[in-house]
Design a protein around this nucleic acid. Structure first.
Lengths: 154, 154
DNA sequence: GAGGCAAGTGCAACAATGTAGCGTTTGCGC
DNA sequence: GCGCAAACGCTACATTGTTGCACTTGCCTC
């Protein structure tokens, strides 16, 4: 991540109680870590990897353990609050499920490593599955250069 | 590795020189490991992960080092001979590129862990990319239950 | 508000997967 | 056969994720 010289870039780390509500509505306890993780994911426009989430928590002054973070994310996945995106990179990325059942594709920029949600593009898969196969979920990841990187390296 | 009392040289692990030709045609040296890896990938119907490739080599009596295997696979990727499939699992899977430019989807069975090529299903992506984005490659992975597992656990 | 208890957290250790450095071996052009 | 770069094998290390266990805390009940 490039250092941002601006002194006050992120003053409001999502003020709504959305995070708490999400957790409670899924029968979970309200804890520091859980709330902070959900807020980080809600606040980040794009899917975040484990490291980025950890950095966000640290920036927000929320002390945390690596393992606890994994367990918080596990809980979110288990309760359908978050989704994991596999992609090319070694570490998985996580995003908040904003609408149950809605699926969208992701774009992975090979140059800057950014992963971007393509809300308009939904994996079309309907046909072509061999007989007997049951589809639960489809994941479509596009690879290439994002607009910014495409300009720099044509 | 189990000692093989049988004097006969195993049940023929791909006899064609296809592997050698593939390697030579890409300007590579013919080496034990490289040939064995390509043959393993050619012989395996489905994409194999690192562990499975290693097991295949061992079964074929080809001694090898973990690192060397990684490097052989790197070489194949670098020269477009093989493709890496990310998927859900921790370890990546590899498959031989049978036709340059041809792309197909993969099905990952959540129960048995198998990954199956869906030759008929090609990731349709054309439209919907934001302006300025350059697409290099699309990866479509479906998740669910394969025919065998679907029957066992309906 | 105090007490109790299961869920959540933190720490240490470990497993799996992948990389880097470096000395030795080997394929292949001459 | 000879020389040399490419490939190999070994050790060590980095990253990502998991397990076990003791301690802490959120939340329910009284």
């Amino acid at each position: 991540m490039p250092t941002s010289p601006a002194p006050a870039p992120a003053p409001a780390p999502v003020l709504t109680p959305a995070a708490r509500e999400l957790i409670v509505s899924h029968g979970g306890r309200i804890t520091r870590i859980r709330v902070a993780v959900v807020e980080a994911l809600l606040g980040g426009e794009q899917p975040l990897n484990h490291d980025e989430i950890a950095a966000t928590l640290t920036a927000a002054g929320v002390a945390h353990d690596r393992v606890t973070l994994y367990r918080a994310l596990d809980w979110l996945l288990e309760h359908g609050l978050a989704r994991r995106i596999a992609g090319e990179e070694r570490a998985g990325r996580f995003e908040i499920v904003r609408a149950q059942g809605h699926q969208h594709a992701h774009f992975h920029c090979a140059h800057c490593g950014q992963v971007i949600c393509l809300e308009d593009l939904s994996p079309t898969t309907a046909a072509a599955l061999p007989a007997g196969f049951q589809l639960e979920r489809a994941e479509l990841v596009l690879h290439g250069a994002c607009a910014a990187c495409g300009k720099k390296q044509p």
